[in-house]
């Protein structure tokens, strides 16, 4: 994507940085979450849409990262990006819990050099920041994005190696294992922000299959002082969980200011609204949990 006019570029970056928070829901939907035996496959649908879990808008085409129960990296096979959804398969050969993740991480931003406004190249990472901003640049504004979307699949008995926190963005620590959920038992999860328990995060829980009922079946919770949240499942099914530092935004509304609390540290840079680069940081955590009937 080549931008010739800075103004266009600014608008485009603002739009790129925003989609998950503003409009549609990104989701990963596994064919199974609890499997038995020693050699199984699961297939995963990956898409972006309003209604869960109907692929009717855009695919989530990023290549996922697979972490196997022993901590080694696995492989996403048969990856295919279609019009409405991406699909891929994971071959389960180990006993224990697998993590399947799509992590959207990057830095958006701009700077002024010799009176000209330049955008940071697409795909810039936090580590590259120092090298992509030339000496003498002024009015540097950056916005970090770290949107983690991950699901879990367990072959045999659940294990915990894949939950070892990286210390970056929002992460889930099981109190209840995400592959040990039954509708008549409340589940507790702890959420970390940059490796530390994060209180006051907004946790949105939505039951899938919304097309066939009139209400969303949405549960809105906040994490407690230990970063924990307890979810009482209304029924068995596939649930979409989204965790953000800021109050989730109603559908169809325009951009809103980022919260500036401890959960969302502001990046150094100019004030809000200068040229449309969102200042601060965009972090979120999304997962899909299968809750089985007792």
């Amino acid at each position: 994507m080549q931008f010739r006019k800075p103004l266009f570029a600014v608008a485009a970056v603002a739009a790129l940085a925003a989609p998950a928070a503003i409009a549609h829901r990104m989701w990963l939907l596994p064919s199974s979450t609890v499997v038995s035996g020693n050699d199984n496959w699961v297939t995963v649908d990956a898409a972006v849409s309003n209604d869960l879990f109907y692929f009717d808008h855009r695919p989530l085409g990023a290549v996922p990262t697979i972490t196997q129960p022993d901590g080694s990296e696995g492989k996403a096979e048969h990856h295919n990006v279609g019009q409405f959804r991406a699909t891929f398969d994971v071959h389960l050969t180990q006993q224990g819990t697998y993590r399947i993740a799509v992590v959207n991480q990057g830095v958006f931003g701009r700077y002024t050099l010799n009176g000209e406004t330049k955008m940071l190249p697409r795909g810039t990472t936090k580590a590259q920041l120092a090298s992509v901003i030339p000496a003498g640049a002024t009015d540097v504004q950056t916005s970090e994005t770290l949107m983690r979307n991950e699901i879990f699949v367990t072959q045999g008995a659940p294990t915990n190696t894949v939950f070892k926190p990286t210390g970056q963005g929002i992460e889930l620590v099981p109190v209840t294992h995400p592959n040990d959920l039954v509708s008549n038992e409340p589940a507790t999860f702890q959420f970390l922000m940059d490796g530390k328990p994060a209180s006051g995060l907004y946790v949105t829980t939505i039951l899938g299959n919304g097309r066939y009922r009139a209400t969303q079946k949405q549960i809105d919770l906040r994490t407690d002082a230990q970063g924990k949240v307890t979810i009482k499942w209304p029924e068995a099914g596939m649930y979409w969980i989204n965790v953000t530092p800021n109050a989730p935004q109603p559908e169809g509304e325009g951009p809103r200011p980022q919260a500036q609390g401890a959960g969302a540290p502001r990046a150094p840079g100019g004030p809000q609204g200068m040229g449309g680069v969102p200042s601060g940081r965009r972090v979120s955590y999304t997962t899909t949990l299968e809750v089985l009937a007792p």
């Binding site: 609890v34 038995s36 035996g37 020693n38 050699d39 199984n40």
Partner: peptide, 13 residues
């Protein structure tokens, strides 16, 4: 090939 174990998890509880 131990295929029979594939559906053991359907005896869910």
């Amino acid at each position: 090939g131990g295929e029979g174990t594939k559906w053991l998890h359907d005896v869910r509880q």
